[in-house]
Structure formats: C-alpha cells, structure tokens
Amino acid sequence: MAVCVAVIAKENYPLYIRSVPTQNELKFHYTVHTSLDVVEEKVSAVGKALPDQRELYLGLLYPTEDYKVYGYVTNSKVKFVIVVDSSNTSLRDNEIRSMFRKLHSSFTDVMCNPFYNPGDTIQSKSFDSIVSAMMVQSS
C-alpha cells in the first residue's frame, strides 16, 4: 500500500527513506522533502495545544495527482512520512494510522538498540522488514 516510507530526523535530514523500486526514487525524495513544509506547519499549529493532547498523527499532509502523503511526528520530533498511491483508495485513515503506529514502535526498537547511534541512518534489518511489509501489502 505504501509506495514510500521515510523517517526524517529532527534536523530534517533523512534517517531512512525507501520507496518501491519500480518508481522513480528521486521523485519520492522530492515529495517527502517538500512534505516537511506541511509537517512543520502542522506541528507548529499542534504545538499550541496542550502537550498531552498532542496527536502524533498529522493526517494527510498534501495530495498530489498521483500520491497522498501522510505524516506523523514523534514526541522527539522525528517525522514519519508515508506516501500512498492515490489510486489506492481502499486505504482508510485507520489503516494509515496503524501503519504509523507500527512504524513508530519499530523505530523505538531501533532507538533502543545500544549499538545504534541516534542520528545515524537506520540500517536495521527488522525495521527494513517492517517497512517492506507495508509496501508489499499493496500489490
């Protein structure tokens, strides 16, 4: 279902970005990078709310003709971006949410790894497989 999954560090550089191999990887990089604009906008808007009421899921960041870009931001300001094909309309908001939750928990595992240096690109195999699962399900 997902065509691209990205984890972006607090400082807005990619910690992990993977897209379906069939499509132009570069385009997704641009898309994800651009989506950070909206993430920032949403985060700053959400930031005004009480911190415990903060919703991590940011919802649809922006649609394009071909893709829908969803965002999620952890409390440590690490951003998750999932790009979904627009034609894949069977995908409900809840499914996106659960994808983000899975992603978050896997990311937490990565961070818990004492050999992982926070801020490095993620090379964890288990994280990779979680992402693969998200991308495979579509086809």
Binding site: E11, N12, Y13, P14, E25, L26, H29, Y30, H33, L36
Partner: peptide, 13 residues
C-alpha cells in the same frame, strides 16, 4: 536547502 538538510538524492540530481 537540500545540502543544509542533507538530502543526498535531491542534492545529486
């Protein structure tokens, strides 16, 4: 801006 944020593919492109 890509360099500042370390996006290697867009940088290359």
């Amino acid at each position: 801006s890509y360099t500042a944020e370390g996006w290697s593919l867009p940088i290359t492109h």
